[in-house]
Simulated assay, not measured.
Amino acid sequence: MLNHLGSLPESQIAHIQALDVGADELLLEFDDVMNTARAHRYEESLPEEDFKLLQKIDSAADAVASAGVDIWSEESLRRAPEWEALRKAARFTRCTLKESWDISDDPS
């Protein structure tokens, strides 16, 4: 999931087109991750540092969701600074968590 969220816009567009969904699906997929992370944090099975990294992505996702209706277009996915900030946060988190979470390079 972090692979898709942090990938280049054209890869994100290919992903949502393959699923036949809109750009909001990228945020919905991450929302599932955050819900699971909150549960694991509550159970103290997720380190606080890892959760804070995910919260940075969540904040960037909130900025995308708050940007208005035009943010959901493929053109916005390519060019909007909110999407780029989200991709950057996802890439940083993915790189940071790659070893401890055994994240593969496979974008699926």
Rank of each mutant, 00 (worst) to 15 (best):
K88D: 05
T93H: 11
P9W: 13
E25I: 11
P107G: 00
A60I: 00
A37R: 01
A61L: 02
A23P: 09
D24S: 03
M1T: 09
R38D: 10
T96F: 13
S11M: 14
D105M: 13
M1D: 04
D62C: 04
K56N: 14
A63P: 00
S100V: 12
W83V: 01
A90V: 08
L77V: 05
P107M: 07
S7H: 11
E10H: 10
M1K: 07
C95P: 01
A67R: 02
S45V: 07
D105N: 13
V33A: 07
E29C: 11
E10F: 11
D62Y: 07
A18L: 05
L8P: 03
S104T: 15
T96E: 15
S7F: 06
E25D: 11
W72R: 02
V64K: 03
H4K: 09
Q17D: 15
T93R: 06
C95A: 15
A23I: 04
C95T: 06
F92Q: 10
E43K: 05
D50Q: 08
E49S: 09
E44F: 02
L5S: 01
D105C: 09
I71T: 03
S66F: 06
S108V: 05
R41H: 07
D20G: 11
A65Q: 07
K88Y: 13
E43S: 03
I57R: 00
A14Y: 13
I16G: 03
F51E: 04
R87K: 05
S73G: 03
K98A: 15
A65V: 05
E29M: 12
G22N: 06
D31K: 14
A89K: 12
D106L: 11
E43V: 01
L26Q: 05
E10N: 10
R87F: 07
A89I: 01
V33T: 09
L28C: 14
A89H: 08
W72L: 07
V33L: 10
L2P: 07
F92H: 11
I13C: 09
D32S: 14
W72D: 00
E82H: 12
E48D: 15
R78E: 15
S45W: 00
S100Y: 05
G68M: 09
D106M: 11
R79H: 12
S73N: 03
N35P: 01
